[in-house]
Design a protein around this nucleic acid. Structure first.
Lengths: 147, 147
DNA sequence: TATATTGGTCAGGCTATCGAACTAGATGAT
DNA sequence: ATCATCTAGTTCGATAGCCTGACCAATATA
């Protein structure tokens, strides 16, 4: 009579595993001055920069938290703040070259994980998983856009 | 040429949405003295109590962090520490009645979310999603057991 | 019984996060 | 034009979360 585990919990377990592994890959590559929360925010920065308020919204934290995280990222040299030409109040947060150099490391680990998953699930189930999650995003992510 | 978003990110988005909603449901029910991290630890406590070290392992935090979180939970009256009869060094962390009274609220919100998802995906895809995630757990969760 | 292992806590310090209050620029109505 | 209001972002103060290192007590092992 034990009901099946809640799907949300299963997802949490898997995504936590992913985060842990990507962070570990960074550490192995010698990058140890960037935290998970910082990476989450940085991952939302678009190619031409993103406003702090937008980052806060997308990462689901308050503006104050986003400010603090961007402060640290800036201090570590991973992002810079430039004035927004279209709005005198606003500033755009942009990735620096130092940050962009890190992307391949993260991407490589992600690919490795996906390959392992595909090996474990088989191609058909992997395909189904991807489809279902993509569809689900429509109702769980209010800020989707492909940057 | 934009490749499909990484499956891990899709999962993160969905599971974060779940967490946010469950916490919001708690808030609506008047419970505002329990945080996400505390809930995650509490969720791992078995029916007869669980050792702190085990909780730490399962929640993937250090023993010290688990101690601090359990301290707060205990202070708020949600758990209690009792001696472990089988090991003089150990103590078992157990849920109190106050905590158990909260479970139905969380469960109800989880059911509601699953229903919404099923409505959006359709029964077949929902089934596939559940199957894939359950399989995936074998390689992403080192501490699975059904309590 | 000496040593290593295991369960747990304490101390200290940094990061993450929030609510409240503030400054500066933008906007809308009159 | 100008005044009230809204929006972008920051600062302040407080607490939670998290880690490393150091430690104590009980158990297991040689």
């Amino acid at each position: 009579m034990t009901s099946e585990p809640f799907v949300g919990l299963l997802m949490f377990i898997a995504s936590r595993d992913v985060e842990t592994r990507v962070v570990a890959a960074m550490r192995r590559a010698g990058i140890d001055d960037i935290t998970l929360a910082q990476a989450r925010v940085a991952a939302r920065i678009g190619p031409h920069g993103t406003r702090l308020t937008d980052l806060a919204e997308q990462a689901q934290v308050t503006k104050q938290t986003a400010t603090a995280i961007v402060d640290r990222l800036e201090h570590a040299g991973y992002v810079e703040r430039v004035p927004d030409p279209t709005d005198g109040r606003a500033r755009l947060v942009r990735l620096t070259g130092k940050a962009e150099a890190l992307l391949p490391i993260a991407r490589a680990e992600e690919r490795r994980i996906e390959q392992e998953w595909e090996r474990h699930l088989g191609p058909r189930r992997m395909r189904e998983l991807r489809d279902a999650l993509t569809l689900l995003r429509e109702i769980t992510d209010p800020y989707r856009d492909d940057a």
